[in-house]
Amino acid sequence: MLTPERVEGWDVPALSALAETDVAALLALDPAPEFVLIGTGATMARPPRAFVAAMEARGIGVEAMDSRAAARAWAVLRGEERWIAAALMPLDA
């Protein structure tokens, strides 16, 4: 997981089981991130609707893409000093 303040490992769930509690460290940011990049591994996939709805209820957007694209987007957006977070799944999962 990546935040503007730190990098930390996480217990990566199956994408289909991704829940708000899995990204609690990202939700603890103050202020909350504008949005969270979800790196879905080697290919793009959609996170569960319940996860997206829970994040949006907190006012946090969700952008899903493959993990390589998410890492590139992270670098560009942080270069623009955007307050974002990322949860990247491994490429071999």
Results as ranks from 00 to 15, higher is better:
Thr43Pro: 00
Val52Cys: 00
Glu20Tyr: 04
Thr21Val: 11
Gly9Leu: 15
Leu88Met: 15
Leu18Pro: 06
Val76Ser: 01
Asp66Val: 08
Gly59Asp: 00
Val62Phe: 04
Met89Thr: 02
Arg68Phe: 08
Arg46Gly: 00
Ala73Gln: 13
Ala75Asp: 14
Leu77Pro: 00
Glu8Tyr: 03
Ala25His: 11
Asp30Met: 11
Arg46Met: 12
Arg6Phe: 06
Thr3Cys: 03
Thr3Asp: 06
Val62Trp: 09
Asp30Tyr: 05
Ala17Lys: 11
Thr43Glu: 15
Glu8Arg: 08
Pro31Thr: 11
Trp74Arg: 14
Pro4Gly: 02
Ala57Thr: 05
Ala73Arg: 15
Ala17His: 10
Met65Thr: 03
Glu20Thr: 07
Ser67Tyr: 07
Arg78His: 08
Asp22Gln: 02
Val76Glu: 01
Trp74Phe: 14
Ala32Trp: 02
Gly61Cys: 08
Val7Asp: 12
Gly39Ile: 08
Asp11Trp: 10
Ala57Glu: 05
Phe51Asn: 07
Glu63Arg: 13
Val12Asn: 09
Glu63Tyr: 12
Ala45Phe: 10
Leu26Pro: 08
Ala42Gly: 12
Glu80Ala: 15
Arg72Thr: 03
Leu26Asn: 07
Met55Cys: 15
Leu27Val: 00
Ala73Thr: 15
Arg78Met: 13
Gly59Lys: 03
Glu34Arg: 03
Asp66Thr: 04
Arg46Asp: 08
Leu15Cys: 05
Ala64Ile: 00
Pro47Arg: 12
Met1Pro: 06
Pro90His: 08
Ala53Asn: 10
Gly41Lys: 14
Ala54Gln: 14
Met65Ala: 09
Gly39Val: 13
Thr21Leu: 01
Gly39Ser: 12
Glu81Gln: 15
Ala14Gln: 15
Leu37Lys: 06
Glu34Leu: 07
Leu77Phe: 12
Ile38Gly: 04
Arg58Trp: 09
Arg6Gly: 00
Pro13Lys: 02
Leu15Asp: 06
Arg82Thr: 02
Val12Ser: 11
Trp10Pro: 00
Leu88Ser: 11
Val36Gly: 02
Val62Ala: 11
Gly59Leu: 03
